[in-house]
Each structure stands twice: as C-alpha cells, then as structure tokens.
C-alpha cells in the first residue's frame, strides 16, 4: 500500500516537471506563436548545469562543485536563458520556420555534446550522485517534500504566467502572434517581445531539467532523449489547449497518464516484442497528436474559453464600479 502511494507521489513529481515544460512551451507557442522543437535541449542544459554544480566532487566529469541546490537551479535557468537568447537573436527576426529549424539544430548539438564530451557530462554513462533536496530532513522520504516544493514552484510560475497573460505584455504577445502588422504599426518592437517570451520559456525549461536531475539523482543522454521529451510536451500542450495555462497543466496530467498507461498496455506484449514496446508507445501518442490536430486543434481547454471568462470577470468588475 505504502509502495503504491510512493509511486503515486513520484509520478506526480514527474507530471509536475512535464507541467512546467508545458507551461514554458505555452509562453513560447501558445501565447507568442514561437515554434520550439528543442525543448529537450533546454531541459538537458538545465539538468546538466545543475548536476555539475551541485554534485559532490568526482573524477567522472567536470565539476562536482558541491554547491547548494538553489544555486544549481538558478544557474540552470540562467544558462538555458542565455542559450535561448543567442538562438533567438539570430532567428527571431526571420521567418517563423527558421526558428523551428534552428531549435532542432540546438537539440542535435546538445545531444552530440552529451554523448561525446565525457569530461563534461560523463558521456553515455551519465551523471550520478546528483543531490536530492530535503534528503537529510526527511530521512530518505524526500518525495513528499519534493512534491510540495514542485507545487509551490508550479504555483508561482502559473500565477506569474496568468498575470502576464492578462497584462499589457501578454496582450502585445497575442497581437504579435495574431497579426503582426497591427502590432508593429502601433509602435511595438515585435522582435523584442518575441525574444522576451522565448527566453523566459527557455529559462523555465532549464528549471524543469534541473528539477528532473534532482528528482532522479541521475541523468544520462538516454533520460534526455530530446525528441521524445520535446514531442511529449508538444502533445501535452496541444491536447490541453495551447494559449491556456490551465490547459497546459491539464494536458501534462492527461497525456502523462496515457503515456504511462501505454506502458502497462505494452507490458502484455509477448517477450520477443517487448524490446520494441517503446516504439509502439510512440506510435500511439503520435497518432493521438495527429487526431487531435485534425479534430480538436484547440485542445481540451481552449484559449477562447479563458478569454470569455476574463471578459465576464471584467464585466462584473465594471458593474461594481
């Protein structure tokens, strides 16, 4: 029984990390229309950065600086943001597609570095002994505390994004996404707004990567299979409803449940096919994405539903005045 609860809590931690990624993508894609297919790369940058800074001294890879976890988290965000800034500076004033292509480039290069630069990342053996937070306080049962911390982080990010969405900044982002000429004509520097949204999103992706590293205490190129992570997050956001922050979180929960469910399903496969079960799971999720795009592109909670609610609230406030 206790095992089951532990499993549930651990699962919720994973869902939370995906939820953060989904929120981050929502700033970039949902709110601003920026296509990022290198989510896995920024996730990995965050994970490895925090891993190198916080793990105890080691000969397996560079660093092992033993720094406190919050320092690692912060550094993860800063480095991911910096790399996002570089990519953005080059591509954001060009056609939208170029950003997408540039982000696969980043994903590919990060993957190559993770695999080939053993001195930096531990190579294919990965990076172990990354400290877990609250381990001493909780005596090994750190998952509870981790989940609480995660919920607080998600809460802060969510509220910040909701505030941003309804703020002038969010309105400009939407204008930039929907109809650039008008936004430009009203004197807004569209490229700067896009860059800001992109960088903020990348920073949150880096944070999610760092949290992942501290949850598992171990990271390797396999764990950061960039395409799979990227793809799952995309499916989550589209299923949940891009442009809608609650949708982003709901999508993370539902798609992660389906994704885990397929694992149980493929568990029944005969042994000789079991090694290929992973492929079958990806096919199922891929088909789900295509079906969603064709039949319900606005997702479970559409952006419009949120805007209607905002409007109702403002009308109520108008009445109060």
């Amino acid at each position: 029984m206790l095992g089951l609860i532990d499993y549930a809590i651990f699962s919720l931690c994973i869902v939370g990390i995906y939820g953060l990624l989904s929120l981050a993508l929502n700033i970039q894609w949902g709110m601003t229309g920026l296509f990022n297919i290198g989510i896995g790369a920024f996730f990995a940058i965050g994970g490895y950065t925090s891993g190198i800074l916080t793990s105890p001294e080691t000969t397996a890879h560079v660093g092992g600086f033993g720094m406190p976890i919050p320092v690692g988290l912060l550094a993860a965000m800063v480095l991911s943001a910096a790399i996002g800034l570089l990519v953005g500076l080059v591509t954001l004033n060009l056609r939208a597609d170029y950003l997408a292509i540039a982000t696969i480039g980043i994903a590919e290069i990060i993957r190559l570095i993770l695999q080939n630069e053993g001195w930096l990342t531990g190579g294919v053996r990965g990076m172990a002994n990354i400290p877990r937070p609250f381990e001493q306080i909780t005596g090994g049962q750190f998952e509870w505390a981790f989940l609480v911390m995660l919920i607080v982080i998600i809460g802060v990010v969510f509220l910040a994004l909701e505030a941003a969405r309804t703020s002038a900044w969010g309105r400009v982002l939407r204008a930039v996404r929907e109809n650039e000429p008008t936004a430009l004509a009203s004197g807004k520097d569209a490229t700067r707004f896009r860059l800001e949204a992109f960088v903020v999103g990348c920073a949150i992706m880096g944070l999610a990567g760092a949290l992942y590293a501290h949850l598992f205490s171990f990271i390797s190129p396999e764990a950061f299979e960039p395409m799979l992570a990227t793809f799952l997050v995309w499916v989550m956001l589209i299923a949940g409803g891009s442009g809608n922050n609650k949708g982003a979180l709901l999508g993370a929960l539902v798609i992660w449940a389906i994704w885990s469910g397929t694992q149980i399903l493929t568990g029944y496969l005969p042994a000789e096919l079991a090694t290929r079960a992973g492929a079958l799971r990806i096919i199922l999720i891929g088909v789900l994405l295509i079906v969603l795009l064709v039949t319900r592109p606005e997702g479970m909670l559409s952006e419009e539903s949120d805007r209607r609610r905002d409007r109702r609230r403002e009308e109520r406030e108008d009445l109060k005045d």
């Binding site: 395409m227 793809f231 992973g278 079958l280 990806i282 096919i283 891929g286 994405l289 295509i290």
Partner: peptide
C-alpha cells in the same frame, strides 16, 4: 508527429 510515427 509523422516523423516520430514513421521512425517508430
């Protein structure tokens, strides 16, 4: 999505 489906 198609890319991942084909590959898988």
């Amino acid at each position: 999505g198609i890319a991942l489906i084909l590959r898988s």
